[in-house]
Design a protein around this nucleic acid. Sequence first.
DNA 1: CATGAATGAGGATTCATTCAT
DNA 2: TATGAATGAATCCTCATTCAT
Lengths: 212, 212, 212, 212
Amino acid sequence: MAAPARKKPVKRRRSPIQSRGQVTVDAIVEAAAQILAKKGPAAATTNAVAARAGVSIGTLYQYFADREALLREIGRRHVAEMQAVLAGALTGMEGLALPAAVDRLVSAIVAMHRVAPRLHQALHQSLARDHLDTIDAFEVAVEAMVASALVGRGDDLDLPHPELTATVLVRGLGGLIRTTLRREPERLDDPALALAMRAMILGTLGESRRKG
Amino acid sequence: MAAPARKKPVKRRRSPIQSRGQVTVDAIVEAAAQILAKKGPAAATTNAVAARAGVSIGTLYQYFADREALLREIGRRHVAEMQAVLAGALTGMEGLALPAAVDRLVSAIVAMHRVAPRLHQALHQSLARDHLDTIDAFEVAVEAMVASALVGRGDDLDLPHPELTATVLVRGLGGLIRTTLRREPERLDDPALALAMRAMILGTLGESRRKG
Amino acid sequence: MAAPARKKPVKRRRSPIQSRGQVTVDAIVEAAAQILAKKGPAAATTNAVAARAGVSIGTLYQYFADREALLREIGRRHVAEMQAVLAGALTGMEGLALPAAVDRLVSAIVAMHRVAPRLHQALHQSLARDHLDTIDAFEVAVEAMVASALVGRGDDLDLPHPELTATVLVRGLGGLIRTTLRREPERLDDPALALAMRAMILGTLGESRRKG
Amino acid sequence: MAAPARKKPVKRRRSPIQSRGQVTVDAIVEAAAQILAKKGPAAATTNAVAARAGVSIGTLYQYFADREALLREIGRRHVAEMQAVLAGALTGMEGLALPAAVDRLVSAIVAMHRVAPRLHQALHQSLARDHLDTIDAFEVAVEAMVASALVGRGDDLDLPHPELTATVLVRGLGGLIRTTLRREPERLDDPALALAMRAMILGTLGESRRKG
DNA sequence: CATGAATGAGGATTCATTCAT
DNA sequence: TATGAATGAATCCTCATTCAT
């Protein structure tokens, strides 16, 4: 088994304010993320991570209480990156007409999932159920974001349950993208798929307008 | 007396010719599935499985070449069960009008995902990429099934790319259901969600009719 | 968290950079050699070796990729020791008359085989055929050495096929000594046996001189 | 480890006088010998032997108290076969002149070692030190046989210590042949080697005649 | 007598984690 | 702080052996 998770005591370790430690932490996190993405959770042993980061195993434990803590930190950073990509891809959507806005949304969500799909999956595989919080919280936030975007369009798109619609869209699109990424990664570049996703969104919005 | 020896992976193990053996195999598979579902892959050690099944570890290895083989068998059985549920929930759909048929499809896919969601997730986490075949094959089959159902409706639903639409629907719906199952399992009983899924399907179908 | 995973055999292990490590390695090798010699290969389990060496099993695996690697290292050291003994026992043979030289050779080969006969046999029993290289290479080297010694004596001993004669002598003498060591170890001190070996060598040399 | 050898109690099992059992025993012994010879001691597990013999593991234990007992029986039969070959190759040596007799002896001993060299080696590897008796006894007998043959030649070969000479010859020749068999099996057909062995014997005999 | 399912002690190996230097 | 040698519980898996049928 990879992570026995022998203990509960959540020992905090120093949070590096000095740059020296920050560099070290970054190296460790980066090394772990790379191994995770390239070889999967089983290969991401603490010793392997330390070796690839060029630090000793002792140093790793100076900054992370245990393996799980390291994984959680990776999750945190991964989510932050997804968020940044998403935010970037969504800016200036206010003025757009609905079809253009939908195109924008589609490509934004696709872009977000492209950030580091292998890492994304590896994190899902390696984090214990009780530590997916960060990722879950992000997904909730995305749904809220899309919901408010839907509301923001006003009468243009008068939806009876915008949150619900947002949930369906975000989770549906997300699932579609993740499944595709796992089984046919190259297909994500197929314009036909983008069109189909667009149709799904537009159709769902249109259909949701009348009855909820 | 001599040295151990690393041996070539001879995968096959005895397949039970006595009924006694079949009972044992079932007990093992059942035990493993339960542990997997309740405590996740890390807890499903071969020893734990044997103990819960009430057999010795040696017996487990009499029927399964290694831990992976056991997991694969569980995957096979799980998929078979999903398939059975899906097939059962889809019978007699030919005569139905589109909205009723969609309702039927939605509840069928939901039912299918309800089979053993924790186990489903655990299998995805534990099986190495090269052993998800069985599950992947099933998902492909479901998409094909839905595609042919779409084609089968004829002019009623004249779609330019029925396979693509089926893919989008099945993966989208699947992702939506799985995410919901993981994060808000009780919500899957919410009629509002069912309606929203219906809207998504109907909308997607309607929108896909014109441009592909 | 994730599944165990069978991994590619990465053979190399840390080679000690601190002297502490060297001490540990020596202790492990020494312990293994002792068990091997006293109780045979079956008793030389990695756990038993670690215990006798006074280190944990983990430490053993820090220095040896697997059990075979440890055995091979023992083989290497054993051969080195035999070589040293042989070289020591053969120095200054050039000036000697043939009978004296033969006496010297006999006692050298006997001494070489006395180094650690039980270990010698245990190694032959435990090493897989593909890892007897080191030992075989040494035996070849010994034959070559003796062959060149035979050639070196010049007209004094004009042999038609010195390599062949060396092979016969070394293998014959070796087998004689090993068999005796195994069945009647004390007899190796019997001067009569030494004389008989001498007779065998001198006789063989004499007889080989004419026809090859 | 291959054979834990957990116990000492030498439980006798039925010795089959009826032909049915004899056939079974033969099948088992034959199967074990083949596996031993082809794949080495580690592959000769009791289950593998039973499978190859076409009987159940239970049946194997009906005839052999434990794995060691089976190995010992194989040893016994192997030795008997060697003995038969040796005896056959030595018949009618009385009338021969010394050189011809020596040729005969050489080819007899070579033939004896050719019987089943892989099995021979496997037996040496797998039998615990305390169970090599049968093989050792045979070797002693061979030495005695040769000694008496030497004595039998009378004045023709007036040796001061015929037993010692026989020992040296038999063990030396044996070692030479076994080493060659292991390292350069094809070379045993080389006529030059036969000549060299002949020279060794003749020379040894000649040299031993004067001083012992 | 034969069968083969079941047993479980024992062996090799891994890896998260600690701690003396 | 950093290091890396050392730890040992935990895991997978094998195989000689038993015994109910």
